[in-house]
């Protein structure tokens, strides 16, 4: 069951690729169906609803990050409030923190998620969710969502 060990740099590179393939051509944001996420505009929000990717980010966040970073990115006694971090953190720095992990003072440990496909595969979704939280677009509760859109490019 053990997955082969990717090198962290390959993961970082392939994550960077994810965005460059899907690109963020000046797609008109007429509808959630046309929405293509980018580091600048990682989420889509209209009529109180988010795109499915951002919603997926909510789910993945609460499965893998919430035990330390608290509900809805609000922080806990364990780890910082990511909705504050993402007010200043770039997408690149965010990915870097999640892939390599880090160690702070007093045994404050941010583990590396490089081996975790459930996180790495959906890292843009998690970012989108937390960015939407940081921007104050969605509240602490489960966001309403638009249906899943079949992607033209290979699933990220």
């Amino acid at each position: 069951m053990q997955h082969s060990k990717f090198s962290k740099s390959i993961i970082l590179a392939s994550i960077a690729l994810t965005y460059s393939i899907s690109g963020y051509s000046a797609a008109s944001k007429a509808d959630y169906r046309d929405f293509v996420p980018s580091p600048e505009q990682p989420y889509y929000f209209q009529d109180g609803k988010v795109d499915f990717g951002t919603y997926n980010g909510f789910r993945r966040y609460h499965a893998d990050c919430h035990v330390c970073h608290g509900p809805a990115g609000m922080g806990s006694s364990y780890a910082p409030a990511l909705l504050e971090s993402l007010k200043v953190m770039s997408y690149g720095d965010f990915v870097n923190a999640v892939v390599t992990g880090r160690e702070g003072m007093d045994n404050m440990i941010m583990p590396s998620f490089a081996q975790n496909v459930d996180v790495i595969k959906y890292i843009a979704d998690i970012y989108a969710y937390l960015k939407a939280r940081a921007d104050g677009v969605i509240g602490p509760t489960r966001p309403d969502k638009f249906p899943k859109v079949k992607k033209l490019i290979a699933d990220n």
């Binding site: 997955h3 789910r59 966040y61 609460h62 919430h66």
Partner: peptide, 21 residues
């Protein structure tokens, strides 16, 4: 509230597969 979804197993990584409020 409890929403289960697909997860993959990696030794030493969280293996949760649900989000709860």
């Amino acid at each position: 509230d409890y929403e289960p979804f697909q997860v993959s197993y990696t030794a030493g990584q969280p293996y949760v597969g649900a989000t709860l409020s």
